[in-house]
Design a protein around this nucleic acid. Structure first.
Lengths: 115, 115
DNA sequence: TTGACATACCTCACGGTTTAAGGTATGAGT
DNA sequence: ACTCATACCTTAAACCGTGAGGTATGTCAA
């Protein structure tokens, strides 16, 4: 096609899906489609990620033993439920620290007028 | 070579260099090498970006008319000083809004236990 | 019963971005 | 003479969200 432009790599979102997935699964078991809706709901629609972002993450995180899954039929729906493993909890802690580092650094510069 | 692994795209840093460059140049004129040191200093070493990240950004931002440069000899050194244009100021405002969006969204999920 | 829509899963090419490493040149200090 | 910091530059590689594609099933109204 001509004129097809993809707005790839939006600012500041790198790594955020993984962080949110781990954090949300740390609180309760969820399936992919639900995670996508949960991210929109919990962030008050400030953030939203597509299926092409979330599903590959879930597969990769499970392969890395950070998540474990079980395919089940619930409410008349076939779903793949994911839950956090012990390793996943460690990664979440590390990622949360990374986020704090970056957020702190940015704040120091952005809000640094009155410092 | 064998065993050469690059840790590209670290979490949460996407877009941060551009935001910091624009913010720092909004306060005062700076040259590339100084920007790199200033980012380390102003973020209390929480953040640090290499020359291979900063210099291409400066070139690209100038090409997009968000920055203007002037090559000068100061303190016995040949330097390329950059300053923000009016367009650059608008981009900075937009980027800062984006940052707030993401930071707010992440906070809502991470700090959402007591909400 | 047909159609539309939401649910629920999956995959892929593309584009943008930081990293790590390479390079050149000059000034300062020993 | 040597080393180090300054100051600029470029490039390949790896990564990751987007946007679009696909399949299948459940629900509900017309």
């Amino acid at each position: 096609m001509s004129g097809v432009v993809k707005n790839a790599n939006p600012s500041f979102l790198n790594g955020v899906p993984e962080l949110l997935i781990l954090q949300l699964l740390a609180q309760q078991e969820r399936y992919g489609y639900d995670l996508i809706k949960a991210i929109q709901a919990r962030t008050q629609a400030q953030l939203s990620f597509g299926e092409g972002c979330i599903y590959p993450h879930l597969h990769h995180l499970e392969e890395a033993k950070l998540l474990a899954s079980s395919r089940r039929r619930v409410e008349g729906r076939d779903r793949v439920y994911y839950r956090l493993t012990a390793r996943g909890r460690k990664r979440l802690a590390a990622l949360a620290r990374d986020w704090d580092r970056v957020a702190t650094g940015v704040s120091l510069v952005l809000g640094g007028q009155h410092a």
